[in-house]
Write a protein that binds this DNA or RNA. Sequence first.
DNA 1: TAGCCTACCAAGCAACTGCTTGGTTGGTAG
DNA 2: CTACCAACCAAGCAGTTGCTTGGTAGGCTA
Lengths: 194, 194
Amino acid sequence: MPEPEGSRRDELLEIAAGLFAEKGFKNTTVRDIADSAGILSGSLYHHFDSKESMVDEILRTFQEELFGQYDEILASDADPLAQLEQAVLVSFEAIDKHRNEVAIFQNEAAYLLTFDRFSYLADRNQQSREVWLTLLQNGIDAGVLRTDLDLELTYRFIRDTVWVAVSWYRPGGRRTHTEIARQYLSILLEGIHT
Amino acid sequence: MPEPEGSRRDELLEIAAGLFAEKGFKNTTVRDIADSAGILSGSLYHHFDSKESMVDEILRTFQEELFGQYDEILASDADPLAQLEQAVLVSFEAIDKHRNEVAIFQNEAAYLLTFDRFSYLADRNQQSREVWLTLLQNGIDAGVLRTDLDLELTYRFIRDTVWVAVSWYRPGGRRTHTEIARQYLSILLEGIHT
DNA sequence: TAGCCTACCAAGCAACTGCTTGGTTGGTAG
DNA sequence: CTACCAACCAAGCAGTTGCTTGGTAGGCTA
C-alpha cells in the first residue's frame, strides 16, 4: 500500500473542489466532475453517495483545520494586537493553501444552508463571528483599538475583506499571501490617510 | 396611458432581479420567475427574448446610472479626499437603492462573461478599476494619502469591502447606508489602531 | 484457481431546464 | 361592431440533470 489510503477518492474530491469553487456547486454537474477525472459520471457513485456528500466532506475537513488554528491563537498568550494579526495571517494562509475550499465556503454556504445536512455551516459562521468579535473586544479592553467604532460593522469589514481576497488572489502572483496580509493589516490598523 | 409605459415589463424585471440576486442567474429558472409573477413560464416570452436578455437589461440600466455618478465625481472640483469619500458614499447608496443589481453584478459577472453578449461587463470592471486608481493616485499626488502602499492592492481592498457589503446590508436595519459608509471611510482612512 | 475487491463502464430513467407554438381573453380605439 | 392588441394559457419538445442498475476488467490473497 504505497498510498496513504483513499488516494483515488481524495483525487476525485480535489477535482470536485476545483470545479465547485470555479463554477459553483449547483452549476457543476456530476458529468463535469467525471469528465475532469476521465471517467463516466456513474462511476463517481462507487466512491460517493451523492454530489452533496462530496461538498460536505470538502467543507468539513477544511473547517476543522481552520477553526483549530483560530482556537490555538485565542488560547495563546500573545497580546491582543498580535492575536488579531495572527488571525489575519492564518486566514490569508488558508486562502493560499485551500483556495477552493475557501471559495466554496464563501460562495456556496448560503445555498447549501437550504439543506438540513449543511446546518452546521451556520454554526461555523457564528463561531467565526465570535472569534473576530473576541479578538476586537480584547484589543479594545487592552486599549490598543479605537473605541468609537461599531464592533459589528468592524467585524464585517474585516471578515469580508479577508475572505473576498480569494476571488482574486492567485498563488505565484506578484505578492505572496503573507505580503498581502501585511499590507491589509497596515491599512486596517493605520488607515490610508497620511 | 396612466403608466409611464412598459409597466408590467418593469415589474417582471424587478421580480427577476430579486431572484437572480438571491439564488443566482443560472439557479433561477424561468418557472421561478413566472411563479413569482403569478403567470406561466411561457408567458414571459411575450415580454422578453430570453432569460439572458432579462439580466442583460437589468445590468445595463444599473451600470449606466452608477458609472454616470462616478464620472460626475471625477469631473467635479472637489479635492481628492472629498472625491474618494464621495465615491464610497455613492457606492453604498447604490447598495441601498439597487441591492439586487449590485448583487447580480458582484456574483454573476464571472459566469455571464462566458457569453459573448456580456463582454461589456469586462469593460465595466476595467472602468471601475480606473476610477478607483485615479482617485487614489490623485490623493497620493496631493499628499493626503500614504505613499508606501501597493496601489493595486489598496484598490482591491476598497472595491471588495465596499461591494461585498451588499451580502449583509439590509435597508431598514440598525445602520443607514450613509452611516455604514462613514464608518467604513473612518476605518479606511484612519485605521482601527489607537 | 477460486473468491473477492476496487474501480470502472454502458445504458437509461424520471425530473427539470429554456424555449416554442398555437391559441384565448379582456380591453381599447376607430 | 369591428379590428386590433397586450397579456396570458396549455401543451409540449429537446436537451440536461442527479442518480441507478447490472455488469466487467484486472489485481490481490488464500
